[in-house]
C-alpha cells in the first residue's frame, strides 16, 4: 500500500500515525509531498523517525516540493526522489493508496 503524507511532521500527527501503523508489517511505501517533505531533513527529529522505519518502508519524496522549500541539500540518504510523473507511477504500481490528511 502507498501512504501519502502532505503535512509538516512538526505541526500535525499525520506522519507519526502513518509510521506507527505502516511499520507494523506488510508491503508499504511512503510518499511525502507538500509540507510533508520536511520530514526527511537530515539531523531533524522527524528525520530520525523516518530513518527508523526505512528498513521496512520504502520512502519517496516529491522533488518539486523539496526544491520549492529549499531542502534539496538537506535530505536523508536513501530517500527516492520522484517528479510528478513518478508520483503517478507510484499510484499505479500500488493496488491501494491512502492519503493521511
Amino acid at each position: 500500500m502507498l501512504h501519502i503524507v502532505n503535512k509538516s511532521p512538526f505541526e500535525n500527527t499525520a506522519l507519526a500515525s502513518c509510521l506507527r501503523v505502516a511499520s507494523k508489517g506488510g508491503d508499504n511505501a511512503l510518499l511525502l509531498i507538500e509540507d510533508g517533505v520536511y520530514a526527511i531533513t537530515k539531523n531533524s527529529d522527524a528525520g530520525k523517525a523516518v530513518q527508523a522505519v526505512m528498513g521496512g518502508i520504502k520512502v519517496y519524496a516529491l522533488m518539486p516540493d523539496v526544491e520549492a522549500r529549499g531542502m534539496q541539500d538537506r535530505v536523508l540518504e536513501g530517500i527516492s526522489m520522484v517528479d510528478y510523473a513518478g508520483f503517478v507511477d507510484l499510484v499505479i504500481e500500488h493496488n491501494n493508496v491512502q492519503s493521511w490528511l
Partner: peptide, 23 residues
C-alpha cells in the same frame, strides 16, 4: 518559531510547483 523558521531557508526554488517564491 516552529515551522516558521522554514520561511527563511536558503535555496528555495518554486518553479516546478508554479507558486511565487517569496523568500
Amino acid at each position: 518559531m516552529d515551522d516558521g523558521v522554514y520561511q527563511l531557508v536558503k535555496g528555495q526554488n518554486t518553479k516546478a510547483i508554479a507558486m511565487k517564491n517569496f523568500s
